[in-house]
């Protein structure tokens, strides 16, 4: 999937990164720019970039176990009204949809600290799906879609 080394490809609709949180800034810029080009306003573009940041943060944490030598790619596949982002990695499968939805009242009562990233992704994106790697496909793919209304 991923050719080359850290901080590489950034052509058009794809950006590839190493598993380092320092890459999040670059990913957000890439998503924000493309979301605006697609037609989302500044507020929506910021939120889409935030959702992708959260997905990539989870990926680096849970699929890569903070291993900076691992790499992943983020692609954008725009159609007429759907802005689709795919995050492809070869780490341990981590399906965010299997994480139980957080009740924020309970969350605040318990003064909990983590697990908000998935909550943000759910709040921002219109469609979320996950394809874990299998015998035929070596990559996990998280698909996030936002509909332009």
């Amino acid at each position: 999937m991923i050719k080359g080394k850290n901080k590489i490809l950034n052509k058009g609709n794809i950006i590839c990164c190493c598993g380092d949180f320092s890459e999040l800034y670059r990913i957000r810029k890439f998503i924000y720019k493309n979301a605006q080009l697609f037609g989302f306003d500044e507020n929506e573009s910021n939120k889409i970039a935030l959702a992708v940041d959260e997905a990539c943060t989870n990926l680096i944490k849970h699929s890569f176990n903070l291993d900076k030598s691992k790499e992943f790619c983020v692609t954008i596949e725009p159609s007429t009204l759907k802005f689709t982002i795919k995050i492809l990695d070869s780490g341990e499968p981590f399906n965010p949809l299997q994480v139980v939805e957080t009740n924020m009242n309970e969350y605040f009562k318990g003064y909990k600290k983590g697990g908000l990233g998935i909550q943000i992704i759910r709040a921002v994106m219109d469609e979320i799906s996950y394809l874990p790697s299998n015998i035929e496909r070596k990559e996990n793919i998280l698909i996030l879609t936002k509909i332009l209304s």
């Binding site: 940041d53 600290k113 943000i120």
Partner: peptide, 16 residues
């Protein structure tokens, strides 16, 4: 200019 859940989590970690 920007905050993600990682930033929110810092405040949650100390507020109680």
């Amino acid at each position: 200019d920007y905050i993600s859940s990682a930033g929110l989590g810092v405040f949650m970690a100390f507020i109680e």
